[in-house]
Structure formats: C-alpha cells, structure tokens
Design a protein around this nucleic acid. Structure first.
Length: 262
DNA sequence: ATGGTGGTAAAACCA
C-alpha cells in the first residue's frame, strides 16, 4: 500500500483552510499531520476538511496556541497523546496505520529568543522537552514514524548562515546536541537528509519578517520526518514544497510530503 | 545593531 503523509505547521487552521485545499488539490495526500492549529477541538473546521476528502480526525487542540491534528482519508486507530512537559500544552498526537506502524505528530516548543536557561525559562523548557522525548523515544518498541515542527535546524546546511545562527535559538549547539540525542535514542532515520543529502541546502521555514523571502532566502530546516530504522527503506520520497511559501496568506512553514510503501 | 510580520483576541504574548 502506498501512503502519502504530509506534515505542515499551518499557523492557524481557521486562518488558512485555503492552503489545505491547495495542498490536497496539487498532491494526493492520504494523511495530513498539522501543527499550530490554534483552535480547540470543538472549533476545528471539520466540514471544510471533510469536503477535501478527510473523514477521520484525531485532534489535540487548545485555545490560542499550539495544537496538533491528524486528518486522514482512511480510518486510523488512535494511540495516545503525550505531554512531555506535563503542563497541558497540546503538542503531540499519535495514530496507528493499517500496517501497524505508529505515526507521531509533534510540535516542539520554539524556545523563546535568548538561548540561555537562566535568562529565558522557555529555552530551558525546550531542552527539557527534548530530553524527556529522548527518554520516551529510547523505550519505543514499535515500528514508528515521527514528524512535525521540531523547531531545530541541525546541520550547517539546514540554515542560510551557520555562523550567524550559532547563537540564534533553533541552531545553537546545545539544541543541535539535544536533537542528535533524540535521533540516536531510537536510531531514527532523518528522511529529509536521506533524500537531499548534505551539503545541499534544504529549508522548510522562512520568517514573515522579510520583505522578500525568496530574494533574501534566509531559511531554516525546522520541520522533519523521521522513520525508525526497520521501516526506513519503505520511504520512497520526501518532497519539501517550497513554492507553498508563496501561496496566498501563507504559513511561514512549507509542507513536507513523504511517500511510504506501507 | 535593529527591526522587520503575522495570529489570537482584544492588550500583550507568542512565533
């Protein structure tokens, strides 16, 4: 069975249903994993999404901030939600695919502006979130896919200027180390770099604060799709849909579309 | 070095 699984930080589902419509019209998405839906589950635009062919919803939303969702054209078994911070923030939801593989959709905290735990509690919370995720991931026994907005660009080629971003949250050495520890805890395979190896540059996010995002091209690869090593070979492609950054009223993130024979 | 934009929701706070 061929599955097309998309991951997208949509930056408010209610502000951008037209982007989902465009993605589904251009690409044949079976399962859509969203981050930053920014709405409670009872406000989720189900009818509009059903009109695009998604009949099955696994929602973990909250008022105003965060929020993740998995929309699917095929029925999926809910697995669980996880709260690595134990603070109620809606940052994870998981489902089981028909093959038995578990799909985890995650929104890692951004971490604030100052990369110092003492001066900026949000940065410490981000590192602690990753540390707890690493413990959880190391104990996972199942074939799994984990994807979403990880809010870290690990390689020098994952940012527009490695040296300039060494002290910018998302690319600091301590964050890169935390993401490396997470990846190695389960020998996760970074599919983004499997299909577009370093040193080619690859970005998934461009700030809104640029007059011309394409001309300046100050991007970062913050969004990721990882597979557990036993099923990594079932991945046949991972597309980064850069043109979506120019769609009407865009998200600052672009969608990733992964293809699996599962 | 600074500030640049956008969503939520009604003034900041978050990204």
């Amino acid at each position: 069975m061929s599955l097309r699984i998309a991951s997208w930080n949509i930056n408010s589902i209610r502000a951008r249903p037209h982007l989902i419509q465009q993605l589904v019209a251009d690409h044949d998405i079976d399962i859509l994993c969203l981050q930053e839906t920014k709405c409670e589950d009872n406000a989720f635009p189900r009818a509009a999404m059903e009109a695009l062919g998604f009949r099955h919803f696994n929602l973990a939303g909250q008022r105003m901030h965060h929020g993740v969702a998995i929309l699917s054209k095929l029925p999926l078994e809910p697995v669980y939600r996880y709260d690595w911070q134990a603070n109620g923030e809606a940052r994870h939801i998981a489902v089981r695919l028909p093959s038995g593989v578990v799909l985890h959709n995650v929104y890692v905290p951004a971490g604030g502006d100052i990369p110092d735990r003492a001066l900026n509690p949000k940065f410490g919370q981000k590192l602690d979130f990753l540390s707890r995720m690493t413990d959880w991931s190391g104990a996972l026994g199942e074939s799994s896919i984990i994807l979403g907005d990880f809010n870290i660009a690990p390689h020098p080629e994952d940012v527009w200027n490695h040296k300039a971003l060494l002290d910018v949250v998302s690319h600091t050495p301590v964050e890169v180390e935390a993401l490396t520890n997470l990846r190695e805890s389960h020998n996760w395979v970074d599919l983004g770099r499997r299909f577009v190896p370093v040193p080619e540059r690859l970005y998934t996010w461009w700030s809104y604060r640029a007059s011309d995002w394409q001309a300046s091209n100050r991007g970062r690869r913050l969004d990721h799709v990882w597979a557990s090593p036993d099923i990594a070979s079932t991945a046949t492609a991972l597309h980064t849909l850069v043109p979506a950054r120019s769609w009407e009223r865009p998200s600052d993130h672009v969608p990733l579309v992964a293809e699996f024979d599962l």
